[in-house]
Design a protein around this nucleic acid. Structure first.
Lengths: 142, 142, 142
DNA sequence: AGCGTTCTAGAATATTCGTTA
DNA sequence: CTAACGAATATTCTAGAACGC
């Protein structure tokens, strides 16, 4: 397995590592955004320091949106879990920024070889009414 | 059903008309881009005059991409069909721009009340291996 | 039915109108925060002009949190729907702030008598007749 | 027992890439 | 050859579920 540590978000992603996971790794590693997103001290999780600035400035560099909620939906989709802090939900004192932490057992600093183990949860089923382009009709119209 | 024909892309679209169809209508109607996308003469189809310029300049104003292929995929998804021209496939002479034409029986000039009849083809099925967070385990970790 | 239009968030809420709905009405009506949350032009929906500033400055005045996601969860819980705009998700030009719009058929300007019709969705929980510890296990770990 | 807050998941559309007919 | 489709991930809006009050 190969992981690309390219400096810009246009790096390739390889077949064993989903695009999201590859981008996330690059994102957390990137020194230029370490003030907004970085590894935790022990390297077993990552921190987003200022959710609002992060979503508006960093997310669109890697994804087609700037919504923290979409980012979190993807994290959950890949099995990441929020690390809940004792003071979450409490009002912040002045100048204190919020801090969000997420964790996945196979997403750890200096352990890129584990990334291939992170997989997306598959949607269980979908249905139903298929709009047929004229059931007996031709599939091509001139 | 209500469709908003507002002049700018910030107008709403309502639940009976899918976002794509609502955007497409606005796009074809918009006078500012009539040189790139417009109704055909009889109003039963629409034309894209310069595929390249259209995809790079117009699409990102309405969608999260600038790829003609993604636009076409959506058109097919909603039951639109390409109108094949006699000279398609022939080499273009200098200065002649390509022209693409698409059609849907419920997408016609001055007939917005038909838009609600245009519906997306539903994906027929999806499968499979669900990553279980520990089958017997909890769904939430703190 | 009585609705309290009190100026401060400590107003009472009355039995026919849930606390959340009562607070929401007060919030939208309040002139002091009209730059962040207000009625739409036709009075059939309400707008949040700057999601980030709104969540940090206004929400904690009325609720025990400052998270937009919690606010939205409540809105959905009471049957409100987001009104999707055509340009949603597209990159904003300079100085252009995001705008979120929500709607409920019984939440309209100058129609407080309708508020009593807004009710919370009932939780559709499944009763586990037999407590199957070890099989279904706990759903949360501490 | 019901409401409020939080974390996670469901469900539908959107985007991409590759294949089919 | 190419229009149309399959299939997977991505993004969005809404709902499920746990827990505290």
């Amino acid at each position: 397995m190969i992981v690309d540590f390219g400096r810009n978000p246009s790096m390739k992603h390889y077949h064993c590592v989903p695009a999201f996971v590859s981008k996330l790794w690059t994102l957390v590693e990137a020194p230029s955004t370490n003030d907004l997103i970085c590894w935790s001290q022990d390297g077993c999780s990552f921190l987003v320091q200022d959710e609002q600035q992060f979503s508006k400035e960093v997310l669109p560099l890697y994804f087609k949106h700037s919504n923290m909620t979409s980012f979190v939906r993807q994290l959950n989709m890949y099995g990441f879990h929020k690390v809940v802090h004792m003071d979450s939900g409490l009002p912040k004192s002045d100048g204190q920024v919020n801090c969000v932490e997420f964790q996945h057992e196979n997403f750890q600093r200096a352990q890129p070889h584990l990334l291939g183990l992170i997989c997306r949860k598959i949607i269980k089923f979908i249905i139903n009414i298929v709009q047929l382009n004229g059931i007996k009709g031709c599939k091509r119209r001139l």
